[in-house]
Computed example of a mutant assay.
Amino acid sequence: MQRFEFKVIPAPKRGEKARGVKTTEERFALALTSLMNQLGAEGWDYVRADTLPCDERVGLTGSKTTFQNLLVFRRVIEPLSVVAPGTTRLLLQEPVPATPRLGPAEAPTPGNAPAVGPAKGLAAE
């Protein structure tokens, strides 16, 4: 089983200037690419980006909620354990109970079937 450690960092808020990179989108993508390549070189795998609320103090008694953009990374801290060839093991799933088998259906009892149609004996309202 693998164990991971996680790293959560704030997403960049500004782009990086570079030769040939002119638009805001290109600069922001460059900043994100540089950050992800730096962390990737350290063994971190990108997992996802999240936006989460954060309560901040304002003045002496006030507070406000802001939203923070975060990047989540992980890396393996314990290698996969060796499993004998030909065996598999699901670790995160509960064992599935065996489905009960049903026997043959019972034969219908001989006789007259009930009449089909509107109910009798009920007064119309």
Rank of each mutant, 00 (worst) to 15 (best):
Q68K: 15
Q68E: 12
W44D: 02
R75E: 04
G62I: 08
S34K: 15
F67D: 08
D50C: 03
L32I: 10
T66H: 07
C54Y: 15
P53I: 11
A41C: 00
Q68D: 05
G43S: 09
R48H: 05
G62C: 09
L70P: 00
F67L: 11
R27L: 04
L30M: 10
D50E: 12
Q68S: 00
V72H: 08
W44R: 07
C54L: 13
G43Q: 08
F28W: 09
T65S: 06
T51W: 06
L39Q: 12
V47R: 01
F67R: 13
N37W: 00
T65C: 06
R57V: 11
W44L: 04
G59W: 10
R75A: 01
E42T: 03
V47W: 12
A29V: 00
S34T: 14
N37H: 10
V58R: 13
T65D: 01
P53V: 10
K64E: 10
R74I: 02
F28E: 01
W44C: 02
S63R: 15
E26R: 06
Y46R: 03
R57D: 14
N69F: 01
D55G: 07
R27I: 03
Q68A: 08
S34R: 14
Q68F: 00
C54A: 13
A49V: 09
D55C: 12
A31E: 03
R57G: 14
T61M: 07
G40E: 09
F73W: 07
F28C: 05
Q38K: 14
W44F: 08
A31D: 01
C54S: 14
R75D: 03
D55W: 10
T33M: 10
Y46V: 05
V72K: 01
M36E: 13
F28Q: 11
L30D: 02
E26W: 04
P53L: 05
R75I: 05
L39F: 13
L30H: 07
R57W: 11
C54V: 08
E26V: 07
T51L: 09
T33A: 09
Q38D: 07
T33P: 00
S63I: 00
D45P: 03
Q68W: 02
R48L: 05
E56M: 15
R27Q: 15
A41S: 13
D45Q: 14
L35N: 08
W44P: 02
Q68C: 08
V72A: 06
R48W: 03
